[in-house]
Design a protein around this nucleic acid. Structure first.
Lengths: 325, 325
DNA sequence: CTGAAAGCGCTTACAG
DNA sequence: CTGAAAGCGCTTACAG
């Protein structure tokens, strides 16, 4: 493993000149530059990023803290991050260890910035405090454990409202929700019903966690009768697909008997047994705004404390118009 | 951001003593150790991993090069890696950038070891050469671009044979394969038919890439007639599920009219419209063996050039016994 | 344009 | 048990 000192010897210049040549500094003649690069190439030189980072105080790395890979939304989003950060000469390194420990790792690695994403709704203020103590650019994507933290916020409430409103337009009155673990969605749902003058009953909310299995189980077991909802919002992509499968197996036709809108927009939503109408943020938009904000944070430029992204409705075939209820 | 030098001042000892105290060296009295740790704690000291790595020449990091996140097999496997490496005090950092560039990143980061996984069948020998030049522990998981490279090999051929043999036991004679991009599987399939004395025809192989969409399209368009296969092996989990959906939509009953075995064992295979019988390696086994080999490589202990993992059959409901053909 | 020097934050023989 | 010194591989003012 050759170092700049050795390259210096081999090419007959000082090692500080080698450093400059390697960094394409304008303080070096083309000739020496060429000579140095040639030697470097020949001996398979690979710069030591650790040493460089230590010397410069910056790593050109962004730490990405991943919460849950089973959800394809996160997989897609991560891909987008890689893509866009590369365009700005940042490498992103990702870890799946729990946030509390991942924070330490990346702090110790002195990454230039830290991105969190996934659902931090459950995290305590304690954690937000820790994050602030870090004294490094931190950007939260998804939901922030604490307002006035730099973040890319998804306006989930707007998304849920949009779904309720679309159902209403299509003539539905009894609208339910599958999934009960995300406070903001549940609340938005209730508010939207209220504002729209639509009826609500506790059993309209099907308690369920955010996985395919739970969605499936929940909808296998729920009683369906003439007064139960004619339309449901599924709180995420996995659960909604599980729910759809369950309905199918029970012989309940979607959308003829029950309409469905799934939260989260993803290609696979279109591939469900019934192509699912969805409401969800554009993942590309999230990635682009994240990159922008992160770079601004690193350069200490002013950043809006939070950037909001509004989910959009994507009409496919899982919602039916009802004329009479 | 406090450093050991400042801690030294604050606690009235030399900084080399601080270093030792922080590393819990036995060359330091309990008393000074306590004092130092207290100060460190108080000022929120976080060790600089870059500096430490530079000084020691090891990073305690494993670089993981990810190829394709859409495939849940990879997501699951990555989780397992994180888990098992943590047990051995290694952090794994992952990147999704293309292998050629990822290699440079991790080389520059001086990670202790590099793991590749996913399908390298397509890679050139050129790449294998580059890998060898790296002069660092490299472990290939999945398929190696080059024999006698340290690797965890999946015995895909054995898996395919197992599937063919199971179909045969269940009375099938005309057995097809969906997916044509993985040389080893296609070849094993043909060999297995030959060895078993089963008929083969070119159209038994449905050309198809390894995604849900392609699997779906392929099976939507393929002609089905009295002489076409009664059973198919789907080359991976995604494609098999796409294929199943297509058959369903065409009104072809699985397994009554067509039996299906999907390659790749994953929880979601059981959640398909028809719980899928699969053949595939245990992801946990892969992870455990990978960690073992990697650690042996790092410690320069002898490592078998390749460790083989044999896929196993998981019987569910997508294969039907036929008595007469 | 080139080079000598100091420094980034740690570790680790080596003396005491 | 403690500390002074050299070193890990780089960068970056500063002189020349």
């Amino acid at each position: 493993m050759i170092t700049i000192k050795e390259i210096a010897k081999l090419s007959g210049v000082s090692f500080s000149t080698v450093s400059k040549a390697l960094n394409n500094s304008s303080l070096v003649t083309a000739a020496t530059k060429r000579k140095v690069l040639e030697v470097a190439e020949q001996y398979g030189y690979s710069k030591n990023l650790l040493a460089q980072s230590l010397a410069t105080g910056k790593s050109n790395m962004i730490g990405l803290i991943w919460q849950d890979v089973v959800n394809p939304v996160y997989a897609q989003l991560a891909m987008q991050f890689y893509h866009y950060f590369r365009n700005h000469d940042y490498e992103v390194v990702m870890t799946m260890t729990p946030p509390e420990q991942a924070v330490n790792l990346f702090k110790q690695l002195r990454v230039d910035g830290l991105i969190f994403w996934g659902d931090l709704e459950g995290k305590t203020n304690q954690f937000a405090k820790r994050l602030r103590e870090l004294k490094m650019p931190v950007l939260i994507v998804g939901s922030s454990p604490d307002q006035n933290f730099p973040s890319i916020q998804i306006d989930r409430k707007a998304g849920v409202r949009e779904a309720v409103s679309y159902f209403q337009q299509q003539g539905h009155r009894r609208i339910g929700m599958i999934g009960s673990t995300q406070e903001s969605k549940v609340q938005a749902y209730k508010e939207a019903l209220l504002d729209a003058g639509l009826p609500f009953a506790p059993e309209y909310i099907v308690p369920c966690e955010l996985s395919w299995e739970r969605g499936y189980e929940a909808m296998m077991n729920i009683p369906i009768h003439p007064n139960s909802p004619t339309a449901y919002i599924g709180c995420n992509n996995l659960l909604t697909r599980g729910a759809l499968r369950a309905l199918k197996e029970r012989g309940v036709h979607v959308p003829e008997e029950i309409s469905l809108i799934g939260y989260d927009e993803l290609p696979e939503m279109a591939y469900a047994e019934v192509p699912l109408t969805t409401v969800g943020p554009s993942l590309e938009e999230i990635a682009v705004k994240t990159v922008e904000s992160m770079i601004a944070l690193i350069q200490m430029r002013d950043v809006e404390a939070s950037t909001w992204i509004t989910p959009v409705l994507n009409v496919r075939k899982s919602v039916m118009r009802v004329t009479k209820d």
